[in-house]
Write a protein that binds this DNA or RNA. Structure first.
Lengths: 113, 113
DNA sequence: TATTTTGTTCGAACTTTTTCGAACCAATCC
DNA sequence: GGATTGGTTCGAAAAAGTTCGAACAAAATA
């Protein structure tokens, strides 16, 4: 039973505003190979979380969720509910607005091996 | 007394070659505010270590040395003996060669506060 | 040569991150 | 409604990074 005091069911996770993005936090988020890999995947376009990180299917979901959290809280990706899963996308516009050229210079570097 | 088996006195610290620079390591080195500050200072040109980090004169020298070590091992700065001290410089050419545009995009971001 | 200046290295304490199972939650499907 | 799918959160343990004093080293200088 839901009464009027109940908050609407928001499975919405907090995302920092564009102007609140902090360079060192973004750099830190991108400084982990697994996280950088995720960003490279999202470079091609939004991806459902279940379709992400298929390279390592043994990764526990809590670990995966944590990687996404670091990227989201730094403002690198957006993570919104979609159906019964989650849609991930790169916050390219916000990153470009706040740190022009940064994302492009990183994404054009060839992955190690 | 020094015989022929003695290694020459190299106060030379190891620096990774340009082609061995690893993006995630560089990003990590730059993801710390104190380290990023150092890089910003070196943007104006080489600096003697004693003249660096004057903003916080209370910083223990071992701490300062550690910051430099992380930057050096990532390939961000060069640290060579000079007189009785050390000369620090940005490895701009190597960084530009390996990660075109990266350093410029980072250095043009205004420091927080 | 002794002293001072400048900085590296080591080791230990401390802090931050990462990892991952367990519990939980929402949406879908039967 | 019950089971399934997909994902977040919590808590604890492990791993990684930071801090800083003490010990050491090399160059300059007296």
């Amino acid at each position: 039973m839901m009464d009027h005091t109940d908050v609407p069911n928001t499975a919405d996770l907090p995302h920092p505003a564009c102007e609140d993005l902090i360079l060192t936090q973004v750099l830190f988020a991108l400084s982990d190979p697994a996280r950088l890999d995720i960003v490279r995947q999202l470079d091609s376009g939004p991806l459902e979380m279940a379709q992400c990180c298929l390279s390592d299917p043994t990764m526990p979901k809590s670990t995966k969720s944590h990687l996404m959290k670091v990227l989201r809280e730094a403002g690198v990706i957006r993570n919104v509910a979609k159906g019964r899963g989650r849609l991930l996308s790169l916050r390219r516009d916000d990153l470009d607005a706040r740190f022009p050229g940064l994302l492009a210079s990183i994404l054009k570097v060839a992955p190690e091996a």
